[in-house]
Design a protein around this nucleic acid. Structure first.
Lengths: 129, 129
DNA sequence: GATACTGCTATCCCAAAGGATACCGGTATC
DNA sequence: GATACCGGTATCCTTTGGGATAGCAGTATC
């Protein structure tokens, strides 16, 4: 329906589309939110596990991102009465609503890197991981 | 393939997925890039038209975002020899690679707002447009 | 004792993104 | 003259995102 080849949206539809995209970005924007959700697709994880899996994130930033994602209903924090205390984070059913978003970004990121390799522009417009 | 219900990705696949999502976010992250591309789905536009259509963006930010999108190959800036000079911005064929990304975000943003209305949490986690 | 684990928090800092405002020169209109 | 159009740019500022580092208490292991 948003495809440019077949059906140019009217200005009203375009405005509504922009609003919806902005709603999504408001919730999902930033360096770490979606990568964090992707790492939890593997199953529930503990704080340090997540940190290792995301490689370069500081505890402070991780803590803040987890809180926001919890607040928005994407993940659940579970506390277990062990020594030391252990806490797991796992995705909620609502996080499944993001599957298409994540898949489209993953797929696009993959093809974009290939596109750049083909055009030899890799160094200037992609980040190291 | 990234769906959680059917096929939990292995850690290696997960790492590759995170990397691909991060590539995409590196290029597309921020408040204005995708809304800007959405507004050009309507067809080529001039600077002031884009500004009006995006509503709250300053000329400075718009100029910067347009430059970056042009640099990344998503749009083309055309200069016409009129009085005063007129310049249009239009999407390139490469921008079509973003169609699924944009559509998934639009669709998600739409359902998320509905989800929040249903749960009466609109005020706290969505932005005004 | 030291070091490691746990999941954070506090402090300080920098970088980046974004906003507010004023302005440019050339032309057109009143 | 004033104001508007055009597409920006310059300056100053605020806000947000993220990073670096140190530290907490309780427990376990050497």
């Amino acid at each position: 329906m948003i495809s440019k080849n077949q059906d140019i949206p009217t200005p009203e539809v375009c405005t509504a589309n922009i609003a919806a995209v902005r709603d999504a970005l408001y919730v999902l924007n930033g360096k770490w939110k979606l990568p964090l959700i992707v790492t939890l697709l593997n199953g529930a994880k503990r704080f340090k596990e997540i940190q290792r899996s995301l490689n370069e994130i500081t505890p402070k930033v991780l803590s803040k991102e987890l809180k926001e994602l919890e607040l928005n209903g994407f993940l659940e924090r579970k506390v277990f009465n062990t020594f030391p205390v252990s806490i797991t984070y796992e995705l909620t059913p609502y996080s499944e609503s993001l599957d298409e978003v994540i898949e489209s970004l993953r797929s696009w990121g993959e093809q974009h890197r290939k596109h750049l390799v083909k055009g030899r522009r890799l160094e200037s417009v992609l980040q190291d991981h």
